[in-house]
Amino acid sequence: MEILVVGAGCASCDKVYVDTREAVKELGLAAEVRKVEDLVEMVRMGIMSVPALVLDGRTISAGRTISKNQIKALLEQETK
C-alpha cells in the first residue's frame, strides 16, 4: 500500500504528513508514506487543493487540514 501526502510550502501540509506517518504506525499498517512536493507530479495526479491524501492512486482527502484521528478513521475505513 502506498500513501501520498500532496502539498508543498505550507505548514498544514507538513502537519498532515507527520500525522499520516504516525497514524500508519499506530494502526500497524504496512504502508509506505511519501510526500509529494513536485508541482509537475501534482498536475499529473490532478490534485487541485492541498493538503491531499492519496491512497494507492485514489484521492481520499483534499484541501483539508485533517487531524491525526481523522486520518486514522479514513485509513481504517478505506483499508477495510
Partner: peptide, 17 residues
C-alpha cells in the same frame, strides 16, 4: 470556492491543464 494561498498553484495548474 474554498481556497487557501498554498492551494493557488495546484488550482491554477488544475484549471489551466
Amino acid at each position: 470556492t474554498p481556497f487557501c494561498s498554498c492551494s493557488s498553484i495546484p488550482l491554477f495548474m488544475g484549471f489551466t491543464s
